[in-house]
Computed example of a mutant assay.
Amino acid sequence: MSFARKHFQKHSAISAAKTAAEFGSMQDLSFYELHLAQLNNDRHRLKQIQSTEAKVQLKTNLLPNYLPYVDGILEANKSVQDEVFMTILVWCMDVGDYSKALEMAEFALLHNMAMPDRFERKTATLVTEEIANAFLKQLKTNADVDIDVLLHLEKLVIRGDVDAQLLDMPDQVKAKLFVALGKAKIKLITNKDEPSESDLAYAKDALAYLERAVELDDRCGGKQDHKTMETLLKKFGDQTVS
């Protein structure tokens, strides 16, 4: 997409959002309807594909067509329900663009934007569960894990300055996030036999996250790691942990 086209789409989205804010909905606005029609066409294309990998690749290719619109909505900073915006939020998570997804999720929560009915879960629940599940899967491999994404998510949905009702979610979902955080902290430990002060600090953080996870969901899958960290800290507990 050319720079001029991106510029046009972004500023058209800003204008549409500002106009819609007067009525509380993006419905019946031609620019929004144009993107919604394109989204429905692209969703139809995705439904024809059975391979999850192929769907992710198609979404990766399609996303640049929508991001200028998304940036326009973000810049307009209006509380308007928007199916296009919320669907692209999910697509960003699907393709692993968590930075953009969390930027959009924070905006959606601050403006009380609901997920389209087909997603069934509330915004905070869906975002937390999808990202936590993705990281729990990744943590089973030797791949590097960007713990900052999980910390950003924790700040948003656990300690965020958002209406508590909007952050309400099943304890099991919240536990998944804490397990992912605990395991991610463990992954940062470089030597469990002769842990450094940093290693022990990571272990202490991991233990706290896993303890909270087990409190929320006894079947969260964090018990063994919790026991391991507890043992590690008891063994080397006389070392200073800042």
Rank of each mutant, 00 (worst) to 15 (best):
E120K: 15
L63K: 04
N65Q: 08
A37H: 02
L167R: 03
K234P: 00
F119P: 15
D168L: 11
L210T: 07
F23K: 08
G96V: 08
I189Y: 06
D144I: 08
A180V: 04
L58T: 02
A164C: 01
S15I: 11
L156T: 02
D193M: 07
E154V: 09
G237I: 04
G182D: 01
M169C: 15
D218A: 15
A134D: 15
K235Y: 14
D82F: 13
K234S: 08
Q50T: 09
K185G: 09
L62N: 05
L153D: 11
A105E: 09
R212W: 05
V157I: 13
T190H: 05
L216N: 10
L29D: 15
D117L: 00
V56M: 03
K155R: 14
V214F: 04
E194F: 10
E197P: 06
E75Y: 12
I14S: 02
K100A: 12
D82I: 06
S198F: 13
N41G: 08
D168K: 15
T87W: 07
A108R: 03
G222I: 00
L139W: 10
Q172Y: 04
T228I: 08
V214G: 00
F31P: 09
K185D: 13
A105V: 11
M113R: 08
Q165A: 10
Q81M: 06
L150R: 07
Q27T: 01
F107Y: 14
A180I: 02
A164R: 03
A108P: 03
V162D: 11
D71N: 15
F178H: 15
A208I: 05
A4I: 06
G72I: 03
V162S: 13
K78R: 13
L67K: 08
D218K: 14
G160E: 10
K10F: 02
N41Q: 12
F85M: 07
A37C: 00
L139I: 03
S15A: 13
C92Q: 12
D205T: 00
L166K: 14
D71K: 12
L153S: 08
L36T: 02
S99T: 15
D146F: 00
Q50Y: 09
A201V: 04
L166T: 10
M104N: 10
I73G: 09
K155S: 14
K6I: 07
F85L: 06
N40W: 11
A13G: 01
S198M: 04
L177F: 11
V56T: 13
T52F: 01
V56A: 11
A206P: 08
K100Y: 03
T231W: 02
A76V: 05
E215F: 03
N133W: 00
Y32V: 08
S30E: 15
A108G: 06
D161G: 04
M169P: 12
L232T: 06
S51W: 02
D148L: 14
S25A: 08
Y32F: 13
S99R: 15
P195M: 12
E230S: 12
A16L: 11
E120C: 09
A180W: 03
L46K: 01
L181K: 01
